[in-house]
Amino acid sequence: MGKRNHLEHTEGRDQDEKGDEMSTKKPFPSYIKNKLIRSLQYAKLKTQKKNQKKIRRKERDAVEKQAVQLGEAAPPRRVPRTIENTREYDETVARPDDDELLAEDAVDEFSAHFNSEVTPQLLITSSRWCSTMTIKFIAELLRVIPNAHYYKRGSYEIKQIVKYARNRNFTAIIIIHDNRKEPNGMLIISLPDGPTAHFKLSNFVRSKKIKGHGKPTTHLPELILNNFTTRIGHRLGRMLASLFPRQPNFRGRRVVTFHNQRDFIFFRHHRYIFEEKEEASRSSNTNKGSEKKSKKSSKVKMIARLQECGPRFTLKLISLQHGTFDSKYGEYEWVHKADMDTSRRRFFI
């Protein structure tokens, strides 16, 4: 009996010690079973983190301000870790001082465009049986891309369209595919010698669905290509640039952007707006035998902002093929396969 009581006593003590350890190891509200108390504790913890972050920011700003006053260099700020800046090393990253890449650019299929020897002329069409939304998407493209012309597809094969466009000095063909009454694919064929790029198209938003959208003018837009870093991305960027004229008319303040992020190419269309804004400033005047009185004066300040014109859509490269479209005997430069998506930090464009 004595031994049994001793064992029960030690077990009870061990359980009490474990309970104390568990009570000290409960820093997160998820351990609390009561939903109301758990939500209150979570809100309290969130507020504490927010206040701590604010304190750290104030301390950092104070240190930087003191360094500026003393004429010293400010301490470097910590760079947050993101998927983009921790991407896997890629040997095909294009360098601006790469002589081999510059030599290839001088003789590739787009050299005539970048030497201003040709003016872009685009033929835009659709699949044989297209939906109303695809027609609306093509209408948006015609409003954005200069010198673009729509031709009804009919029953013509793509090779027949290529031959027709080449004989009439078109520089590129854009074919929009759809599925379930929504545009879901884009085929861009550069003429006369290719290459051909096939994209998956998604997240299409019409211009009138964008809140506060603007109406663009007919001026030639400025083109921005962002984050096309690899050899494939560099070639793809030159292909997209060949769709727009080389001499933008900055008076129209139109900007077309192709932004690559994690191999998704986001299309945006904006215009700059310059406005005059009055800023109220107070000045004090002192009169004899009277108190200080504040007097308001206004200053005119010029501000610039962006207004989105639309449309919005997203492209993801499926394949890049040498020459014009040939699904049977075509030679592919790059094809996306399922086994390529083994890492979230591996990008190809």
Rank of each mutant, 00 (worst) to 15 (best):
Y156S: 14
D178F: 06
T171H: 06
H219L: 05
N249V: 03
S155G: 12
H213E: 03
S155W: 07
T229D: 15
I188Q: 06
I174T: 10
Q160E: 15
L223E: 06
I176L: 08
T230E: 11
T230Q: 12
P183C: 08
I188W: 02
P216H: 06
T218G: 10
I189P: 08
R206P: 01
R231Q: 15
L243F: 03
K209A: 12
H177L: 05
T218M: 14
L236N: 02
R180G: 01
I188S: 04
T257H: 03
Y164T: 05
Y150I: 01
P146Y: 05
R254L: 13
I175Q: 14
N147W: 00
K152P: 00
L220H: 04
F170I: 03
V162P: 05
F228M: 09
R168V: 11
G185A: 13
I176H: 00
I189C: 07
N227T: 13
K211S: 12
F204G: 05
R238W: 09
F250P: 05
R153I: 06
A241F: 11
D178I: 04
G237F: 08
K159I: 02
I188P: 04
T196K: 07
T217N: 15
E222N: 11
S190P: 04
I158G: 04
E157L: 09
M186N: 07
F250L: 15
F204N: 03
G154I: 08
L225C: 13
V205E: 13
D193G: 10
